[in-house]
Structure formats: structure tokens, C-alpha cells
């Protein structure tokens, strides 16, 4: 019975895969829309960001990014609601050895530095708020995994997260107040293109994104890891 069902699923899956391959063939040949080419031609002059992906994410569709941050926020909040609030303060149940704990402690500042670098240079080089935020969340988590006891403070995390969210929207409202559209990039042409202080408000927006993503992912990890919660007995 199980055998036959497995076989049926296998045949269905292979058929679906073949259908997907034949469907996908068409997309590679033709350029369906010209938007990408136009952005490649005009994006650098429009926003002054050397990284055109940043220009798209924050300049051309900043509202989408705000929606995406909202999704992440709702997911992290819902996970916290489902798992219950953990008061924090107790150490994780599993302790790594001395070498692991020391290495994790040593790694922490470098990971924070790397994350900050990736966020701040988001408009110049590959990287940006999303990647740097994830690196910062990982930086908070490495010492926790080794059991060396550096706890992510949930209160500080939620404070940073709210401030970053407010900052993102405030920059958007500033653009609205200046007569443009919501989240339109401001001061794009101050500073030499390719310099650290260039591209107007885009680096500030990416900084807000990075702080928000970092604190949300860190709190999600802390909740899933059950840090500061009692270990359930049926495990």
C-alpha cells in the first residue's frame, strides 16, 4: 500500500518536474519586460547608489521593502505569541567546552563589525541591510550556542527594532513632506558617487532595515532556542 503510494507520488513529482522544465524554457529566451534594462541605464544617475540592487530595493520599490519588513515583523511577533513570552535570565541548558566558548566570545565583536560593514556599505558593494542584519543576528547567536552566557536582551532588541521601524517610516514621511512621494530618495546627488557618504537617504534606510532585520532574527532565534525558558519535560 505504502509502496504503491510512494510510486504514485514519485511519478507525479517527476511529471511535475518535466512540466516545470518545459515551462521554464520560455522564460530564458526572451526579455519579457524592459524595466531591468532601463534601470541599468538610469539607476546610477537617478539615485547615485553604486549598487543597483540597492537602488531597486530602496529607491524604486521602497514601499515593497516596507511591506517585507512588516511580514518579517508579523512572523517574529506571531512566533513569540505562539511560544509564549520568555522572561530571560537563565543560561541555556547545553554548555559547550572551554575552547568553543572562548572562540565564540572572540568571534562576537568581529561578527558585529562585519555585519555593520556590510550594512553601511550596502549602497556601494554587495550586501546591505538584509545580509548585514542576518550576520548581526548570527553574531548574537554564536556565543549562545556555545553556552558562554551572553544573552540577547529581548527588551533592548524590541527597542532597537521599534526605533528602526519608526526611523524607516520617518525617512519616508520626510520625503512626503518635501513634496515627493512616500519613501522617495532624498539628496541623491550630494556627495561623489561611490563615496561612503553618497546616495542620499538610501544608506540611512538600509541602516534602519539592517537594525530591524537583525533584532527580529535574533529574537526569533532566541525564542526558538528556548533561551531563558524551562526545558519541556516531554522532550
Amino acid at each position: 500500500m505504502t509502496m504503491r503510494r510512494n510510486l504514485a507520488s514519485l511519478i507525479f513529482t517527476v511529471g511535475l518536474g518535466l512540466m516545470l522544465v518545459s515551462l521554464m524554457q520560455g522564460s530564458h529566451t526572451a526579455f519579457p519586460v524592459e524595466v531591468g534594462q532601463n534601470i541599468n541605464a538610469a539607476g546610477f544617475a537617478d539615485h547615485g547608489a553604486a549598487n543597483l540592487v540597492t537602488s531597486v530595493v530602496l529607491g524604486y520599490r521602497g514601499l515593497d521593502t516596507l511591506g517585507e519588513l512588516t511580514i518579517l515583523f508579523v512572523a517574529a511577533t506571531a512566533a513569540g505569541m505562539v511560544l509564549g513570552h520568555c522572561p530571560g535570565g537563565s543560561t541555556p541548558p547545553v554548555r559547550g567546552g572551554f575552547i568553543l566558548a572562548t572562540a565564540a566570545e572572540l568571534l562576537f565583536p568581529f561578527l558585529i563589525l562585519l555585519g555593520a560593514y556590510i550594512i553601511i556599505h550596502g549602497h556601494l558593494s554587495p550586501g546591505g541591510g538584509f545580509q548585514g542584519g542576518a550576520v548581526i543576528a548570527a553574531a548574537y547567536y554564536v556565543p549562545l550556542l556555545a553556552g558562554s552566557g551572553r544573552l540577547f536582551s529581548e527588551d533592548t532588541g524590541s527597542l532597537i527594532e521599534s526605533l528602526a521601524g519608526v526611523g524607516f517610516i520617518a525617512i519616508g514621511l520626510l520625503a512626503l513632506w518635501g513634496g515627493g512621494e512616500f519613501l522617495a530618495p532624498l539628496y541623491s546627488h550630494n556627495g561623489a558617487p561611490g563615496a561612503l557618504l553618497s546616495a542620499g537617504t538610501l544608506p540611512l534606510l538600509y541602516l534602519a532595515v539592517g537594525l530591524k532585520v537583525g533584532s527580529e532574527l535574533a529574537s526569533l532565534l532566541a525564542r526558538l532556542g528556548g533561551i531563558g525558558m524551562e526545558v519541556d519535560d516531554d522532550a
Binding site: V53, I118, P126, G127, G128, Q131, A134, A137, L217, L221
Partner: peptide
């Protein structure tokens, strides 16, 4: 796509 590669390396294979 170095941006996406960075995100995938950090998020997909790490977090």
C-alpha cells in the same frame, strides 16, 4: 548576483 549570494550564504546555510 553577489547580493543574493551573500543573503543565501548567511540565511540559507546559516540561520
Amino acid at each position: 548576483a553577489p547580493d543574493v549570494a551573500l543573503a543565501e550564504a548567511v540565511v540559507g546555510s546559516g540561520l
